[in-house]
C-alpha cells in the first residue's frame, strides 16, 4: 500500500512540479503527460487483483531517466530531478506489497491452455 501511495505522490508531484519549480519546455509537457498516467496506474495497482499494472510505472520510470537525453533538457538539475523520480518509481514498483486474497490463478491463467482438457 505505501509503495503505491509513494508512487501516487510521485505522479501528482510531476503534475505540479513545473509550476512549483518554474521550469519550461520540453520537461514541462513531458511531466504533464507522465504524471497523470503514473498516478492512474498507482491507484489501479492498489487493488490486489490488478496489482500487476504497477509495472507500467516501471516503464514510465525508465522513460523519466531517458527523457532528459531524448528530449534535450538544458539544465543539470532538471536532468537530476527527472532521473531521481524515475529511479524512485522503479524502486517502488519493485515492491509488490502484501497480497492477502486468492484470485483463482489470476489473469495469467486466461492465456494458459488447460493440459487436463486438451
Amino acid at each position: 500500500m505505501w509503495a503505491r501511495l509513494i508512487n501516487l505522490a510521485l505522479g501528482i508531484w510531476l503534475m505540479a512540479a513545473s509550476s512549483v519549480l518554474r521550469y519550461g519546455e520540453p520537461a514541462r509537457t513531458n511531466d504533464y503527460i507522465v504524471g497523470p498516467i503514473a498516478a492512474t496506474f498507482a491507484i489501479i495497482a492498489i487493488s490486489e487483483a490488478t496489482r500487476g499494472v504497477r509495472w507500467v510505472n516501471a516503464l514510465l520510470g525508465v522513460w523519466l531517466v531517458l527523457a532528459p537525453w531524448v528530449l534535450g533538457y538544458d539544465s543539470a538539475w532538471l536532468i537530476l530531478h527527472s532521473s531521481v523520480i524515475g529511479i524512485a518509481m522503479w524502486i517502488v514498483t519493485a515492491v509488490r506489497g502484501t497480497i492477502t486474497q486468492d484470485f483463482g490463478g489470476g489473469w495469467s491463467i486466461l492465456w494458459r491452455r488447460d493440459p487436463k482438457r486438451h
Binding site: 489470476g106 489473469w107 486466461l110
Partner: peptide, 9 residues
Amino acid sequence: IGPAMDEVL
C-alpha cells in the same frame, strides 16, 4: 477501475 476488475477476472 481496480475494484471493478476483480469481478471481470
